[in-house]
Simulated scan of single mutants.
Amino acid sequence: MKKLVAVYVIIMTCGFAEEYTQADRIFDMQKMAQAMQDIQSGFFYNNLDIVKAGAKDLKETVVKIGPIKKETENKDVYERWMTNNTAMTKRIQRKIAQNTDDIVARFSAGDATQALQFYSKISSECMKCHVRLRKW
């Protein structure tokens, strides 16, 4: 009986799970932009807590980014591949997450120059996605 209830709960949870929408993506992009601004403010004010908070927000938000329903349901194989390149997205997400850790580590160690270089690498990864996938 318990197994039956557990299976029912799982099915209902999956059935009511909300899909990732364009509005969600826009909100997440705005959160990432704010996190990048927070990191930069932490650099300018020489405040490690602000840098850590911005890095934490960025790292938590970047993993949410993914294709929206319209992109995944597209029937044209080439178009779907161009707009839903999940391998590239995952690679960019991993690099951004690693670079945020490096920013905090370098800034904590007092090496603001290296931390700024990792910040620049994150900006480069952001632009890579926007240019290649979003066609900016």
Rank of each mutant, 00 (worst) to 15 (best):
T72K: 10
Q30R: 12
F16H: 01
V63R: 00
G15Y: 07
F16K: 00
N46T: 10
S41A: 11
D38F: 06
F43D: 04
L48I: 15
E71A: 07
D76C: 03
F43S: 04
L58W: 09
Q40W: 05
K70L: 14
R25C: 00
D76H: 03
E19A: 15
K56W: 13
A35C: 04
G54T: 00
I39Q: 00
D49H: 08
T61Q: 05
K75N: 07
I50A: 15
R80C: 04
M36L: 12
A33K: 15
Q34G: 12
A53S: 13
V63F: 00
A33G: 14
Y78Q: 11
A35N: 01
D24M: 08
Q30V: 07
K64R: 12
K75Y: 05
V77R: 00
R25G: 02
D38I: 07
N47E: 10
K75I: 07
K52R: 11
D49M: 11
Q22G: 00
F43L: 06
F16N: 03
I68A: 01
Q22H: 03
L48D: 09
E18F: 04
L48R: 08
I65E: 12
Q30W: 07
A17L: 15
Q30C: 05
K70G: 10
G66N: 06
E79M: 09
E71R: 07
K70E: 15
K75W: 03
D24R: 01
Y45F: 09
G15P: 05
R25K: 07
R80L: 09
I68M: 03
I68F: 01
D24P: 02
E73T: 09
Q34T: 13
P67M: 10
D28C: 09
F27H: 07
F27W: 07
A23T: 15
T13V: 13
A35S: 14
Q34K: 13
P67Y: 06
Y45H: 10
Q34E: 14
T72L: 14
Y20T: 04
Q37W: 08
C14K: 00
K64Q: 09
K75S: 09
A17N: 09
M82Y: 11
I68V: 13
Y78L: 13
N47R: 01
D76S: 05
N47F: 04
S41E: 12
F27P: 00
L48H: 11
M29C: 02
V63Y: 00
E79S: 10
M36R: 07
T61A: 07
Q37Y: 10
E79P: 00
E60V: 06
Q37G: 11
A53F: 12
D49C: 03
T72E: 14
E71M: 09
I26W: 05
A17K: 11
A17R: 08
A23W: 07
C14M: 13
Q30H: 12
G42M: 02
D24A: 05
